[in-house]
Write a protein that binds this DNA or RNA. Structure first.
Lengths: 196, 196
DNA sequence: ATAAACCGCTAACACATGTTAGTGCAAATA
DNA sequence: TATTTGCACTAACATGTGTTAGCGGTTTAT
C-alpha cells in the first residue's frame, strides 16, 4: 500500500502522465496497457483511476501540453523583428532542443495523436494545420525577400518537421554525437538547403 | 458465401495483405482488428485464416517486402560509376517515388515494424541498421571527394529518411502539389542542403 | 484528537481481441 | 462425372482490455 512518490511541485498525476509518456513511446498508445503503466508506477491498475479519468486523458495531456509549448514559442518568434530565415532557424533549433530534452512527450504527441477521440482529435488536427500554415507563411515571406530559395513552402515545412522527428533515431543509436553537434548538423543541412 | 475476388495474377492472400496495409496505416497495427480487416475484405474474420497464418504474418509480409525492395535498389545504385552525391539523389528520388506510389505499404513498414515479434523484429532492425550504414558510407565518400559538406553522415541519413516519411502529410493534405513537383522540391532542399 | 479527504487495494464487470474447430458448399481436377 | 481441394461460414474459447465498486488504512485539516 505504498503511495506513489512525488517530488516537490509534482502531483501524483504528473508522475503517472510522465510514466505514460515513456510507455506510450516504447510500445505505442494502443499496445501499452493500464496494467503495464500501473506496474511502472508501482501500483495496481485500478489505483490509477484515483488520479486520472481515463487512458485517453493521458494522451490528451501529453499531446496538448506539447502542442501548446510549440505554439507559444511560435508566437514569440513570429513577432521578433528578424529576417524570415532566422525565424525558421530559431524555430528549428527550438524543435530540436525540445525533441532532445523532452523526447518521450514530444515523440508521443507526434506519433500517437491519431488515437485521440473527438473533440480532442479534430482540435489537435486543427492546431497542427494552423501551426504548419504559420510556418509556411514565414517561409513564403523569406522567399519574397530572396532569403529563401523559391520552393513550395508546404513541402519545406513538411521536410523540416519530419526531419526533426528523426531525432528519435539519434536517441536510440549507440554511438551518439553530442546534442549540440546534432543541432549544428541539422541546421547546416536544413537551413543550408533552404537558403538561396 | 461470396469468395474473395482476385484480379489476374493475385492470390486471395495478396488481396488480404493489401487491405491490411490500408487498415494498418490508418488505424495502426494494434488498433486494427482482424474483424475490421475481414469487413474491408468482405468476409468473416475466421475466413481470413484460410489464407494467412496470423495477424503478425501480415506485418512481416509488408515490412520485409518493402525492405527488400529498397535493399535491391541500393545494391543497384551503389555499383553505378557516378559521384556520391548523385547516388544519394537517385536513392532519394527512389524513396520519394515509392512513398508516393506504394504509400500504404511503405508507411506501415516505416511506422509499425515495432510490433513485429522476434526473430523478425531483430532481423528487421538489423537490415535497417545496415541500410543506414551503407547510405552513410556513400555520404562519407562524398565528403572525402568534396562533393558534400563536411557534416555528420549519420545525421544526414536520419534527416533524409525522415524527411521522406513526411510525404505522409502530403498524401493527407487537400491541396496537393503534383508528385513530380513534390519530388523536385524535396530534392532541391535536401540535396541542396548536402551539397558543398 | 476527531473528522474528512486522500489513495491504494481486491474483486469483478463487460467487452474486444486473435484464433481454432468443424461443417458444408463450390470450384478445380481426374 | 466423380473426387478432391479450396474456402467461407457459425460457434466458441481463452485471454487481455479499460474501468467501476467498495473496503480500509493513512495522511491532512480542524
Amino acid at each position: 500500500m505504498a503511495r506513489i512518490k512525488t517530488e516537490k511541485n509534482t502531483t501524483r498525476k504528473d508522475v503517472i502522465v510522465s510514466k505514460a509518456a515513456i510507455l506510450f513511446r516504447e510500445k505505442g498508445f494502443k499496445a501499452a496497457s493500464m496494467r503495464d503503466l500501473a506496474e511502472s508506477v508501482g501500483v495496481e491498475a485500478a489505483s490509477l483511476y484515483n488520479h486520472i479519468k481515463s487512458k485517453t486523458e493521458l494522451l490528451h495531456e501529453l499531446c496538448f501540453s506539447v502542442a501548446n509549448c510549440f505554439l507559444q514559442k511560435l508566437d514569440e518568434i513570429e513577432s521578433e523583428p528578424i529576417p524570415a530565415i532566422q525565424k525558421i532557424e530559431k524555430i528549428l533549433r527550438f524543435h530540436i532542443v525540445e525533441m532532445v530534452n523532452n523526447y518521450e512527450e514530444v515523440y508521443v504527441s507526434d506519433r500517437e495523436w491519431k488515437h485521440l477521440n473527438d473533440p480532442y482529435l479534430s482540435n489537435f488536427q486543427n492546431q497542427r494545420r494552423i501551426y504548419r500554415k504559420r510556418l509556411a507563411a514565414i517561409i513564403e515571406t523569406g522567399i519574397k525577400n530572396k532569403e529563401i530559395k523559391p520552393i513550395d513552402a508546404a513541402t519545406a515545412v513538411l521536410i523540416l518537421l519530419h526531419a526533426i522527428s528523426g531525432i528519435e533515431s539519434w536517441h536510440r543509436s549507440k554511438q551518439k554525437i553530442t546534442a549540440a553537434a546534432l543541432e549544428e548538423n541539422m541546421v547546416t543541412i536544413l537551413v543550408g538547403g533552404l537558403t538561396v
